[in-house]
Every structure is written in structure tokens, then in C-alpha cells.
Design a protein around this nucleic acid. Structure first.
Lengths: 198, 198
DNA sequence: CGGTTACGTTAATGATGACTAACATCGTCC
DNA sequence: GGACGATGTTAGTCATCATTAACGTAACCG
């Protein structure tokens, strides 16, 4: 009755459940600070059960980061190909990053800390997606600030990410509802200032 | 002749050397991703030699973070007690953080990632220093933006830290020389925007 | 000199942890 | 009703690692 229809249905849920739990733990204690047993315990199974779903701890991390960087990149690409004005596009990009950071702080944290623990085949791919994501931003910024050299735009983009991803650190200070417009306003202003000569 | 005068002189150097090497390694691979043997190798001695200088791995981390948070807090306190106008004070605070982030990226990285691995007696003290540091900022910001609720100021402060500490991520994009004014301008603008109603 | 102190070294030792093996359970499908 | 596949379980196994032990060495001090 309450049992599940298809095994496949369950498999997906369990995998997602594990990935979510692992993200939280990795964000809190770092990849090497979390054991397979810890992750299992977090979803109510114990230890080696995880090997029914992932080929290993590193594979789990790889899938997690690949998923995050794909989603970010796809969202950004969608926004950009919508081809509105650069101002509106920038706003949409800001929304993508802000909403993601507010809704998935653990994933964001892991995403920019643990790439070094992903084994080589997939590491390259994640890097590639991250780079593409940054380039979407840089392209839009270049339209808004023509004449600003790309390295400067890239550095500014990273700085804005740092600003937006600060969310996990100020957890509890402000509600997500209040955080969103604050981050938005600060990011916009910071971007505006990045155009100045220096 | 080239031998050292006092043993105490050498001890300090070695300790500092170890702390610096450990900071770099911790920043790159995380506390649990670095072994005592790794740290020893980085300074040319091997493994257990470190126990001549530190009582253990956690103690090493604790001293490192205590040192960073003390220095930041002291610098901020000095700037604030200088009692110039709030605008100038804010500029000086920005300089403190920017220079530190540009000159010691590894320390900054470890400082906001690895507090969780410091054992309890000292963890509390580090937290206290970090809180005091933030409060120096909040006090100054409150003067500049009266009527802005403190939680909002705190969130804005953390966001600015995130922006400034992005340096390790954009390493290589821009020289420190070019980075400094960029970060400064972006941070000032972001702070200015944080006052708006939201 | 003889002893102490500072600093290293190379072997244990004892935990912890990733991963594997061998063995259930239990729907689903024929 | 029995085979199968998906999913767990518990008991190894084998590395890695923090920490300790036991043992040099060499500078300095008396």
C-alpha cells in the first residue's frame, strides 16, 4: 500500500537523498572530514550501503559538483540566449546566482572548495563548466563596460561571486527574504564600480 | 660561524616556517587532507619532528587561527581608536582587510574554513576575536548609515568580506597592484548600496 | 670533560576509514 | 512458486595517519 511502485523511482530518490546529505556534511566538515559511515547515517542506512548507489566517495563528490556546475551554466546560458538588453541580462544572472546561493548554501560552499578532491577525468569537465559560467558573466559585463579589459572583468566577476556566496557565513543574520534584495543591490553597485579606471 | 647564536632564535623561525607551510597546505587541501608528514616535508624535516614545536596538529591549527584573528582584530581596533571621521575609518578598515587578503591568501582561506577543527578551549576565543572584528566594522557602518538595522549591517559586512576574500579564487587574473584599487572600489560601492531601504 | 637542552631520526602503536565479501530480504515477473 | 534484481547488513581487509617511544647528535655551559 504505502510501498513504492517502481524500484527505479526509489533509486532516484535515494541517490538524491544521499547527495543532499553529503552536501551538507561536506560543507560543514570538508570532504576528508566526513566518512562514508557519516553519510550513510545521515540518510538512515549504515556505511557500505552507499556503494549500491555510487562507486565511491570521490564519485559521489564528482557527481555532486558536476550537477551544480551544469545547472549553473545551463541557467546562465538560458538567460543569455534570451537576448534582452545587457542590463536585464545582468539582473537575470544575478538572480540565478543569488537564488542558488540562498537555496543551496551547502552546494555552493562545496562547489568552490572541493574541486581539488574530484578525480581527473571529471575534474576537467567541472572546470570547463565553471569557466563557461564565468564567461557568460564576462560577456555580459563586457557589453556594459566596453573598454574594460577582460582580466579585470573576470576578477570583478569572481569578487561578485564571493560577495553573493557569503550567504552561508551570515546565516541567521537576515532572512532569505531580506537577504535577496540586499545582495542584489550590493552586487549591482560593486559591478558598477568595477568599471572605473583604477 | 654561520651557526646560530641562541637556540631560542632558531625555535621561533622554525615555528613560523612550519606555520606558513601548514597554512599553504591547509588552504589547498583542507585540514584533514594534509598529513603531519606532508607539513614536515614542506619544511624539509620529516613527520614527527613537528612535535618538537607543537603539541599536535590541532594545536598547530589553533595557533594559526588565533594569530590571524588577533592580528585582524588588533589592526581594526587601532584604526578605530585613531578616531578620524567615519569615512576615513572605513577606508582604513578596507585597507586592513584588502592588504591582508592580498598578502596572506592562504591564511585568509584557512581562517574562514577551518574553525570547526579547532578544539574547544581555543575555538571560543577565536570566535570571540572574529566577532569583535566584525563589530568594529558594524560600529563604523552604523555611523555612516544611521537607521540601518544592525543585522543588516552585519550581513553587509560579511558580504564585503566575501567580496574581498575572493582574491584566492581569482589568483592570476590580475596583479595585486591592480587588484587593490579594484577591490577597494567595489567594496565601497557595495557598502554604499547596503544602506538603501531594501 | 660531563650534562643538559634543542632538535631530529626511524620504528612501533592504535584508530579510523574506504572499500570488498558474504550473506539476507523482498518486491516483481514469469 | 521460484529466479532475479535492487537494496541492505555485518564482518573482514588493507592503508593511511596521528601520536609516542627510543634513540642520535651537536651546541653550549659549568
Amino acid at each position: 500500500m504505502t510501498t513504492v511502485r517502481t524500484p527505479t523511482r526509489n533509486r532516484g530518490n535515494r541517490r538524491a537523498e544521499i547527495l543532499a546529505a553529503a552536501a551538507t556534511l561536506f560543507a560543514a566538515r570538508g570532504f576528508h572530514g566526513v566518512s562514508i559511515e557519516d553519510i550513510g547515517a545521515a540518510v538512515g542506512v549504515s556505511g557500505p550501503a552507499l556503494y549500491r548507489h555510487f562507486s565511491g566517495k570521490e564519485a559521489l563528490l564528482a557527481e555532486m559538483l558536476l550537477d551544480v556546475s551544469s545547472r549553473l551554466r545551463e541557467s546562465a546560458a538560458a538567460v543569455v540566449t534570451a537576448r534582452t538588453g545587457p542590463e536585464e541580462t545582468l539582473d537575470a544572472l544575478l538572480d540565478v546566482q543569488i537564488i542558488f546561493a540562498l537555496e543551496q548554501p551547502a552546494l555552493i560552499t562545496v562547489h568552490d572548495r572541493e574541486l581539488g578532491n574530484v578525480p581527473e577525468p571529471q575534474r576537467r569537465q567541472i572546470r570547463r563548466l565553471q569557466r563557461l559560467y564565468v564567461e557568460e558573466w564576462v560577456t555580459v559585463l563586457a557589453e556594459l563596460h566596453p573598454g574594460c579589459p577582460p582580466p579585470r572583468l573576470r576578477a570583478a566577476t569572481h569578487a561578485v561571486f564571493g560577495l553573493l556566496n557569503s550567504t552561508p557565513h551570515s546565516a541567521g543574520e537576515l532572512s532569505a527574504r531580506a537577504m535577496r534584495p540586499l545582495l542584489r543591490a550590493m552586487a549591482r553597485a560593486a559591478i558598477g564600480a568595477s568599471a572605473a579606471t583604477g
